[in-house]
Amino acid sequence: MKRILVIFLVITGAYIGWNYFVDGSGVNFAKAEDAVKVTNQTENITFDISSVETMIVPEDRDDVRAELKGKGTVKVDKHGDDIEVAVQRKGFFWFNWFEMDKTTLTVYIPEDYEKNMEIELGSGEVVFKGHSIDSPMKLEKLAIDIGSGSMVLENLDVETYMHHSSSGDVEINSIAAGSGSFEVSSGSVNVQNYSGKLDADVSSGELDIQMDRLTDDVNLNVSSGNIELDLPDDADFTLNGKISSGDLSSDFPLDNKEENDNRLSGKHGSGKYEINADVSSGDIEIF
């Protein structure tokens, strides 16, 4: 039995040594590049990335170009109207003490691309920023799916924003959306300077959203976890709150206020926009 274990360890050690020191993708950094031209027919750019630090950079160009530094390979493929950026990692990643490299991926995209984008993050980190608040990256649809890891989004203007977090931490700043939906089953999502219609469903974890302006209806649902909604003092809304368990609170003075164990409702300002809040467990705080 000991001989079998020794043979297994020798084979494993030899494989790791080859993979990390001989094939050029281990501690000695390798570099991989790939690119595909964006045309008028390109409808969607998708990212399937894990275990790397990724920067998505809009700039003046006509292609999607990916540069990977570190361990693994990157491929930019065209499938019909879609362009897909995918990273593959090699080696035994459960030997974390061998992971002395910091693999990074930089993806350059056309700054005037205005159609659809999907980012699927299994782990690792993604940073995606438009140039500035006054010059945001514009998209028809942005869909985010995070299994774990972290993400930073900034200076975006999208017609439809779709967000799903099953874990991880997300920081969003300066995003304008025609409509936005957040589904948080775990982890933390912090949103600053949001505007647009909002639908939020939290089954666990935490969602914090701050709005400089209230410009559309808001629907909040918590079955566990926590939602904090930070509104401007002059927001005009009608609150319709239902409580099965947990807590719903509002720091705003409300006209025609109705409050009991199962309901909180009332109007602030002109009452122009609807805020529908449903708490079956957990907490919703409006302030």
Rank of each mutant, 00 (worst) to 15 (best):
V202N: 11
Y113H: 02
I144E: 00
M211K: 13
D236F: 07
A143K: 15
Y108W: 15
Q210E: 15
D255G: 02
D236A: 05
S250Y: 08
Y15W: 14
S281W: 11
E206P: 01
E206Y: 06
K242D: 15
F8I: 15
Y15E: 07
S165Q: 09
L68K: 02
D169C: 01
I16S: 02
V22E: 08
D62I: 06
L214H: 03
M211I: 12
V222P: 04
V57C: 09
D77Q: 12
R3F: 10
K197H: 07
I11E: 03
A143G: 09
A176R: 10
L198G: 07
I133L: 14
S174T: 12
I175T: 06
N44C: 12
V202D: 10
M162Q: 07
E228C: 04
E111M: 13
H164N: 06
M1E: 15
K197L: 12
G130E: 14
T46S: 15
S195P: 09
K2P: 03
G147I: 06
N173A: 12
F93V: 01
D101C: 06
L153E: 14
E274A: 09
S174C: 12
E171G: 01
Y273P: 08
L229E: 10
T54H: 07
V218G: 02
S244L: 13
T39C: 15
F98D: 06
S270L: 02
I286N: 08
D283N: 05
G130K: 14
N190A: 07
D60Y: 00
M162K: 08
A30F: 04
N260P: 04
V76Y: 09
S185R: 04
V52K: 06
N256I: 05
I45Y: 12
D77R: 09
E33R: 08
V27Y: 05
D81M: 04
E114D: 02
D230S: 09
D62T: 06
S51Y: 08
S165K: 01
G149Y: 00
E43S: 03
D101L: 12
F95C: 03
G13E: 04
D112Y: 08
D77G: 06
M55F: 05
Q210P: 03
T39W: 07
V6H: 13
T39E: 10
G26I: 07
E114W: 03
S186P: 05
Y161T: 05
V22H: 04
G80E: 13
I16Y: 03
E274I: 03
S135N: 15
G266S: 02
I7R: 03
I119E: 00
F8G: 11
K267W: 00
V202F: 15
T39M: 12
V152C: 04
K129C: 09
T106H: 11
G70Q: 01
S166N: 08
R61W: 06
D247A: 11
L264Q: 11
T103Y: 09
F92K: 01
S50V: 12
G269Q: 02
K31D: 01
S203K: 15
G266H: 03
I144D: 00
F252D: 05
V76W: 06
M1C: 08
D201T: 15
A14E: 01
M162S: 09
A277C: 05
G91H: 04
